[in-house]
């Protein structure tokens, strides 16, 4: 891993955030909403509207509005919410924190379940455990989050009354309450991930088990357990880092639905609220922060992979 490689990766993040900002700004600019009307209400006078348009610079060419927005955004200033009048930036970052808690918990649960599932399926290829795993993965990817969420809530909250159906509790104030409230959302978010990742782990493990160097390790007399732990699993699980990073994008999308259903004040729910209210600054900030998070997660995964896997030469 050379310095130039890291420089290139950093430059790539900058470019990614740039493209995303253009995309987000472009889409939201076409929104059939007049920011001035949204702010002052339908009954505002023409003079008042003109004044606020002037103040917001809505008459300027679009590229100038973009540059102004980006210029403020890099300092963390995303403007004021049209709905609440509060600064958007801090609100979105706080919401992102709650979403990341949910996301990390879901990824942790997924790893605990999916990795052993995939490995066992590969080691016992064609046996019952393998068939069951592939059944689970077919079913898992077929239920969209809103269906899983609703079904889980119906079963675990309404019928069995084990868990609260909705709401969010800060882990700093009430850790046990936070766990109980996060259980359903985390469970929901991890289903599709488990289905996908267990499938990938299975195929990676199979590839490694059939590789020449695992065969060589067996034929030089190493016991099967050593072959599996020292030679096969280590190499099979390395690519999982990349797969998980790619799934973060899917997870962030799913989080929008999950937070909406379980009433968690994360970034996804903030975005939904903003979209419904046509709150431009909030939509822009939320979308940009979410996408930047994903871009950073991907880069971190690449760096981690490069660090763990000695094979790849980055020059």
């Amino acid at each position: 891993m050379s310095l130039s490689w890291i420089l290139r990766r950093l430059l790539l993040i900058v470019y990614t955030v740039f493209v995303v900002s253009v995309l987000v700004f472009g889409i939201t600019q076409v929104l059939p909403a007049d920011a001035a009307v949204t702010l002052l209400g339908e009954n505002a006078t023409a003079d008042a509207l003109a004044a606020i348009r002037d103040r917001l610079g809505l008459g300027d060419p679009i590229w100038m509005q973009y540059l102004r927005w980006v210029g403020h955004a890099v300092t963390g200033d995303f403007g004021l919410s049209m709905r609440t009048g509060q600064p958007v930036g801090p609100e979105m970052v706080a919401a992102l924190g709650r979403s990341l808690l949910l996301a990390f918990a879901a990824i942790a649960l997924m790893l605990v379940v999916a990795v052993p599932l995939g490995v066992v399926a590969a080691v016992r290829q064609g046996k019952l455990a393998d068939t069951l795993t592939s059944l689970v993965s077919y079913l898992g990817v077929a239920f969209p989050e809103f269906v899983t969420a609703t079904l889980f809530a119906m079963l675990l909250a309404d019928t069995l009354q084990w868990l609260p159906a909705t709401g969010y509790v800060s882990p700093f104030e009430d850790p046990w309450g936070a766990v109980r409230h996060l259980a359903l959302p985390v469970l929901t978010a991890s289903v599709i991930l488990v289905a996908h990742v267990s499938r990938m782990v299975r195929s990676e493990t199979l590839d490694v088990l059939h590789s020449d160097y695992v065969r060589a390790a067996r034929l030089k007399g190493l016991p099967e357990r050593t072959v599996l732990t020292r030679h096969a699993l280590r190499n099979a699980l390395l690519p999982v880092v990349t797969i998980v990073a790619l799934d973060v994008g899917y997870l962030l999308g799913g989080i929008i639905v999950i937070e909406e259903i379980f009433a968690i004040p994360g970034i996804g729910r903030q975005l939904m609220v903003a979209i419904t209210a046509r709150d431009l600054p909030s939509i822009q900030a939320g979308a940009l922060i979410m996408s930047a998070t994903y871009a950073v997660a991907n880069t971190l995964a690449d760096v981690a992979y490069a660090f763990l896997d000695k094979r790849i030469r980055y020059d």
Binding site: V19, G254, I256
Partner: peptide, 18 residues
Amino acid sequence: DAVMAVPGLLLALLLVST
């Protein structure tokens, strides 16, 4: 690659709201 940093559902949501 950069466009794909926007989660699919989010991109669809933004577009539909527009």
